[in-house]
Simulated assay, not measured.
Amino acid sequence: MSESPEPLLSVQGLEKHFPITKGLIKRQVAAVKAVDGLSFDVVKGETLGLVGESGCGKTTTGRLITRLLEPTGGKIVFEGRDISHMSQSALRPLRRDMQMIFQDPYSSLNPRHTVGAIVGAPFRIQGVRTEHGTKKAVQDILELVGLNPEHYNRYPHEFSGGQRQRIGIARTLALKPKLIIADEPVSALDVSIQAQVVNLLEDLQNELDLTYVVIAHDLSVVRHISDRVAVMYLGKIVEIADRKDLYESPMHPYTTALLSAVPVPDVKRRSERERIRLQGDVPSPINPPAACRFHTRCWKAQEICRTVEPPLAQLDVRHQVACHFPENVPSDAVPEDAGTPVPG
C-alpha cells in the first residue's frame, strides 16, 4: 500500500434516508434510514472491504460515494474536494477518476449494444481521444481483462456470466480511474469463475495502481482481496480493522457471529468451532432500535446498550469498534475519546 499525506476518499457522517410518503399530497410519514452516519477513509492503493447482511446499506453506500444517489447528510471528500452535493455537470470530469463495477453482469450491459460500443462509451461521453483510435484502445482493454480483441463486434448475450463481468470491468477501466467501487463483483458467478475475477482485480490493482472499495457478503472473498475490512449493521459501521486483526481477533459480537458462519472445509476444525446463531430478524431500517442497533440480537447486551449509543472508538492500532462490551480487547487498550479502559 502506498503512503499518502491525505486519504484518496474520506466519508464523514454519511447519511441517506429514503422518504416514505402517504396520500395525494405525498406527505412524508417516515423514512428508511438506509445509511445513517458512516465515517471512514480509504488511502491510495488500498482495498477496503465493506461487509454485512443483506439490507444493511452496503450498496447504497457505494452509490452515494459515486454520487449515483444524493446524500441526505454528511460529507464525501475525494482527493481533497467535497463532492457531497456537487452538480452533475461539475461531477462529469470527476467520473473519469471514480467508477463502479455493478453486481449483475446481465442487467448492467445494454443488450442492444456491441461490446465495442459498451466499452467505448466512456471515451465518447468524456470526449477522450486516443493515439491509435477508440477501437484499438477498446481492444487493448479487452485483452487486459482476459477477453479476445475479436469480441469487439459481439453482443452481451453471446457471452457467459464471467465473460460479461469482464466486459463490465473493461468498461470501468476504460478511462483509467483512481477509485473503483466494486458492488458484489463476483456474487452472481460460479465459484470457479469467482476466483478468476478476484485474481483479475488484484492483478489490475498492482498493474494500474488502483484503489478499491469492495462491497460483498462473502467473507472468504473479502479476506482474500482486502487490506482493511469495515463491518456494517443496519446502516452503521460497527467495526473497522486490518484484515488479519479482524479475522483473527474480532471485537464486535456481530462480527464474531458473521465469522462463525463462514464455511470451513476442514471437518476437524469445523467441529472445534462454536457456531453462533443470532436470534430474531434484522430490525426495520424505518424504525431502528435506539442506542446500539445490535442490542436486540446481542447475547452480551446490557442496560447501557439500550440507552447509550457506543461511538466508533479506536481500541487498537488500526482497529475501531462501536461496542460497550467488545471482545478480544488488548489489556492496555484505551479509547481515544474515553478516560477509562473499555470492559472486556
Rank of each mutant, 00 (worst) to 15 (best):
H85P: 03
I118R: 00
P122E: 10
S107N: 12
R67M: 11
V42R: 04
I141M: 15
D104F: 08
V138R: 00
G127T: 00
T134I: 15
M86H: 09
G49T: 00
L94C: 02
E46H: 09
L64H: 13
G45K: 05
Q88P: 00
L48D: 10
A117N: 13
H113L: 15
R124H: 13
G120Q: 09
I141Q: 13
M86V: 11
G120P: 05
L48P: 02
S108P: 11
V77C: 00
G80F: 04
I118L: 14
G62D: 05
L94V: 00
G116L: 06
T66E: 02
T47L: 01
K58T: 08
R92E: 12
M86T: 07
N110T: 07
I83D: 07
Y106S: 06
G49P: 00
L50P: 09
S84K: 01
R63H: 12
R92Q: 13
V138M: 00
Q88L: 15
Q126R: 09
I83K: 08
R95N: 10
D82L: 01
P71D: 10
P122K: 07
V128I: 15
Q139L: 14
S108G: 09
T59C: 02
R129W: 09
H85Y: 12
V138G: 10
E46F: 11
Q126A: 15
K44V: 11
D82R: 06
K75S: 13
G49S: 08
P122N: 09
E46T: 14
C56M: 05
G116H: 02
E70I: 11
V119Y: 09
T66H: 00
F78V: 00
L50W: 07
R96N: 02
G55A: 03
R67L: 04
T61L: 12
Q88W: 03
S89G: 06
S87W: 08
G62Q: 04
D104Q: 12
T114H: 12
T66M: 01
G62M: 11
K44C: 13
E131M: 11
T130P: 06
I118F: 13
E53H: 04
A137Y: 06
R63V: 13
T72Q: 13
T60L: 03
T59W: 04
P93F: 06
F78Q: 01
I101A: 07
E79M: 14
G116D: 09
G45F: 08
V128T: 10
H85G: 12
A121D: 15
G55E: 01
Q126C: 11
D82I: 06
T130S: 08
K136G: 05
I83R: 10
Q139D: 05
P122H: 04
T66Q: 04
G57F: 04
G45A: 08
E131C: 10
G62P: 10
L68Y: 07
L64A: 09
K135P: 11
E70S: 13
V43F: 15
R124N: 12
E53P: 06
R96S: 12
L142S: 07
I65K: 04
G73W: 03
S107I: 07
P71Y: 03
R63L: 15
G133Q: 01
D97C: 04
G52P: 03
E53R: 07
A117R: 14
S54L: 12
